[in-house]
């Protein structure tokens, strides 16, 4: 493989990893704080993307930048609604109960999306400034790939700052270890849960907007992404943001290698990898064993 081919593929792998990371980060954040597997995370992602196609339809020129705010907001509102309306009643129940509840939500949201946006696949173009490509050591690199990678870096960096350098982050980490002590120290734990869940939803919505110009937006994308994001989170270790970053890089690279070495087996590669991780380290690369 020559250098330009290597560059093309590396950036391809990075951009795949980046879009996965933004979704998986939200999923794993919510799991870390709330011990909740949220299948409806895929819905927030899909609604973010769908909202983006609508906004761009209204404002063809500046639409994408507006969508970058509207999409995550739509997901945030949905997330807060879901947390306060449904999930709040299910904390402390079995994982399976929560899983089923969020699964039901996914189906409901999917049907609602069909009502609002129809069954057709929709697509939007990247904004003009980043709708092209540039040369890099002989390879043509899609400019929009840089936007996706940058978004992932901003999200990753932002979460790291939030969790390690703010009081809120300290509380989020504390709630995992000992919610009762946190209550005693006067923290409104209900608000905290709602906030974390909303933040997770917001990230999913953001991911939806960011991928919309690059991928096909339509029914089924919710279920597709939740499986992928969950694999990433499991490989990296549920609850670990750094794990999610590593997990998505691994998946991005595995997919690209797979597409090169054994194209018909590319998707199988990922599942194989996951099985290996589960067999060797069931709690994931950076996770901690369940107590």
């Amino acid at each position: 493989m020559d250098l330009s081919a290597f560059v093309t593929q590396s950036i391809g792998a990075l951009s795949t990893a980046s879009s996965l990371f933004i979704v998986a980060a939200g999923l794993t954040l919510v799991f870390g704080a709330l011990r909740l597997i949220n299948i409806a995370h895929g819905s927030f992602y899909m609604y973010g993307a769908l909202a983006a196609t609508t906004v761009v339809g209204w404002f063809p020129d500046s639409g994408f930048w507006i969508a970058l705010i509207v999409g995550p907001l739509v997901a945030l509102v949905m997330g807060v609604g879901v947390e306060m309306g449904v999930l709040r009643r299910l904390y402390g129940r079995e994982h399976l109960t929560q899983l089923l509840a969020t699964f039901a939500l996914l189906l409901i949201f999917a049907d609602l999306a069909l009502r609002f946006w129809g069954k057709n696949v929709r697509s939007i173009n990247p904004p003009k400034v980043v709708n092209g490509n540039f040369g890099l050591v002989g390879a043509r690199v899609p400019a929009y790939d840089m936007v996706i990678i940058a978004a992932a870096i901003v999200v990753g960096g932002g979460l790291w700052l939030l969790l390690t350098h703010t009081t809120l982050g300290w509380k989020i980490r504390a709630v995992v270890d000992d919610p009762e002590v946190l209550v005693c120290s006067g923290v409104n734990i209900r608000m905290l849960y709602t906030g974390v869940f909303g933040l997770g939803a917001l990230l999913a919505g953001l991911a939806g907007v960011v991928i919309a110009p690059q991928q096909a937006v339509g029914p089924g994308m919710d279920a597709q992404i939740i499986v992928a994001a969950f694999i990433v989170a499991v490989i990296g270790g549920l609850g670990s943001i750094t794990g999610a970053a590593i997990g998505s890089l691994i998946i991005g690279i595995a997919e690209t290698l797979g597409a090169n070495l054994a194209p018909s087996w590319a998707s199988t590669f990922i599942y194989l990898l996951m099985i290996v991780v589960l067999a060797v380290r069931p709690w994931g690369l950076l996770g901690t064993p369940e107590r």
């Binding site: 597997i37 299948i39 895929g42 079995e94 994982h95 399976l96 899983l99 089923l100 699964f103 996914l106 189906l107 999917a110 049907d111 069909l114 069954k119 029914p219 089924g220 919710d222 279920a223 597709q224 939740i226 499986v227 969950f230 694999i231 499991v234 549920l238 996951m274 589960l278 069931p282 709690w283 994931g284 996770g287 369940e290």
Partner: peptide, 24 residues
Amino acid sequence: MKPIQMLAAVASAALLASVSACGS
């Protein structure tokens, strides 16, 4: 629930979703 059980549940849920969400 262990990750592996959750994964099984998530995967089957998502598969189900892709079939039934469309609603024939």
